[in-house]
C-alpha cells in the first residue's frame, strides 16, 4: 500500500504522464470534463465529470474501416486502434459502468473487438468519493462510493492524504512506475479509509429504490406513467450521451468521391429514427414508447439478461435532462405505481 506524497495527487499524475497517455477530469470552458490531461491538478470538488469516461473505450464516433471503391475494385482497410491509456480520477460509478458495458460488448459469442482491445489496454485509476453529489444514488442500484469494480487502482481520500491500493496486476505495474511520487503509507489503514467512503451520506439512496419496481413488468409496461413522464421529452438524447452505461451505437458510411469511411457512433433510443425502418414502420413511434424503453431497459431488460441494473446511479441524467425526465424521476413514479 502506498500513499500519495505530500497529500497531493499532482506528483502522481505527473509521474504517470511520463510514460502513459493520461486522461483525467480537466476543466474545459468552465466545465469539468473527462479529457486528455494537460498538467493541472484535479479540479476542486468535482463530483462526476460532465461526460463519462466510457468514451475512452467506446468513442462517440470512430471509424471502423476505410474503403476505396463502391461497387468496383473494392479495397477495405480496418482502422487501427490507438495505444494504451491511463484513466485517472475515475469515479467508482463510472469504473463500474465500464465493467457493465463489458458484460454486453465483451460477451463470449461476439465480443466487440475495438471495445475489448481498449478495455484491456486502459488502466483505470479510481478516486473513491468522500461526498455524494446532489443526484448521486449508486447505493440504490448496487454500487458504492468505495467500489473497486472495474478499477485497477483505488485511491481513497483521507484526512492525512490519499491512500492507494492496487486492485489488479496492471494497477500494480503502473504504481511501480511512479514509486518516486509516492510514500510508503505507514500506519495508513486502507480498510478504514474505504469504509469512510463507503459510509458517506447519500440521501437519495435512502429515499428511492428500484428494487421490485419491475417485478410485475407487464403492469409497469402498461402503466400510464410513461405517457406522463414522456410528455415533456424533446428527444434530444442527452440522457444517453452522458450516461456511463448507455452503449447503443449506429453504423454509417461517409463517401467522398470514390473513398469512404464506415463510422460507428453513439445512438440513442430516444431518437425518433432509432428504430424507424424502410417503409416508415416504427415499433416505438412516440416519446412514450421511447421513454419507457430507456427505463425498462435499465431497470428490467438489463436485469433479466445480465443479472443487475443497467444503471450505476451517477445521476448525470438528472443533472442534464432539460425537462426533468431521468432515472430518479422514473424510479419515484414507479415506486408509486407498484
Amino acid at each position: 500500500m502506498k500513499m500519495a506524497a505530500a497529500g497531493s495527487l499532482l506528483p502522481l499524475m505527473e509521474a504517470l504522464s511520463e510514460s502513459n497517455d493520461l486522461w483525467a477530469p480537466i476543466v474545459e470552458d468552465g466545465q469539468v470534463v473527462f479529457g486528455r490531461w494537460k498538467g493541472e491538478s484535479l479540479p476542486d470538488n468535482y463530483r462526476v465529470t460532465d461526460n463519462s469516461p466510457k468514451e475512452l473505450l467506446l468513442p462517440q464516433t470512430e471509424s471502423l474501416m476505410r474503403f476505396e471503391g463502391v461497387y468496383d475494385q473494392l479495397d477495405i482497410k480496418e482502422e487501427p486502434i490507438e495505444g494504451p491509456k491511463v484513466a485517472f480520477g475515475v469515479r467508482p460509478c463510472d469504473a463500474a459502468a465500464l465493467d457493465l458495458i463489458a458484460e454486453v460488448l465483451g460477451s463470449d459469442d461476439y465480443p466487440d473487438e475495438r471495445f475489448g482491445q481498449r478495455k484491456d489496454s486502459t488502466t483505470v485509476v479510481t478516486l473513491a468519493c468522500d461526498e455524494a453529489g446532489e443526484h448521486c444514488f449508486c447505493r440504490a442500484v448496487g454500487g458504492s462510493p468505495a467500489s473497486d469494480r472495474g478499477s485497477d487502482i483505488m485511491i481513497y481520500p483521507t484526512d492525512e492524504g490519499y491512500l492507494l491500493r492496487a486492485v489488479t496486476g496492471a494497477g500494480q505495474d503502473i504504481l511501480r512506475q511512479c514509486e518516486s511520487a509516492l510514500d510508503p503509507a505507514e500506519g495508513g489503514d486502507v480498510e478504514s479509509a474505504a469504509a469512510d467512503c463507503e459510509d458517506i451520506e447519500m440521501p437519495l439512496a435512502e429515499e428511492i429504490s428500484p428494487d421490485g419496481v419491475t417485478e410485475d413488468w407487464h403492469r409497469v409496461f402498461e402503466s400510464p406513467i410513461w405517457e406522463q413522464l414522456a410528455g415533456r421529452c424533446r428527444s434530444c438524447g442527452i440522457c444517453g450521451y452522458v450516461c456511463p452505461t448507455c452503449y447503443c451505437f449506429a453504423l454509417f458510411d461517409d463517401l467522398r468521391g470514390n473513398s469512404g469511411v464506415r463510422f460507428r457512433g453513439w445512438d440513442s433510443c430516444q431518437f425518433e429514427d432509432y428504430l424507424l425502418m424502410a417503409g416508415d414502420h416504427n415499433p416505438r413511434p412516440t416519446e412514450t414508447e421511447r421513454t419507457r424503453q430507456r427505463f425498462m431497459h435499465k431497470l428490467h431488460y438489463f436485469v433479466s439478461r445480465w443479472g443487475e441494473y443497467g444503471c450505476v446511479g451517477c445521476g448525470r441524467c438528472a443533472d442534464k435532462c432539460p425537462v426533468g425526465i431521468h432515472m430518479l424521476a422514473a424510479i419515484k413514479e414507479l415506486e408509486e405505481v407498484v
Binding site: V104, D112, F249, L251, C269, Y301
Partner: peptide, 19 residues
C-alpha cells in the same frame, strides 16, 4: 421477425423486444 439492426451480433442495442 424483421427489425432494424446495426450490428447483428447483440451489441448495438437496436433490435430489442423486451429483454
Amino acid at each position: 421477425l424483421e427489425i432494424k439492426m446495426q450490428c447483428g451480433v447483440g451489441n448495438c442495442g437496436r433490435c430489442n423486444i423486451g429483454d
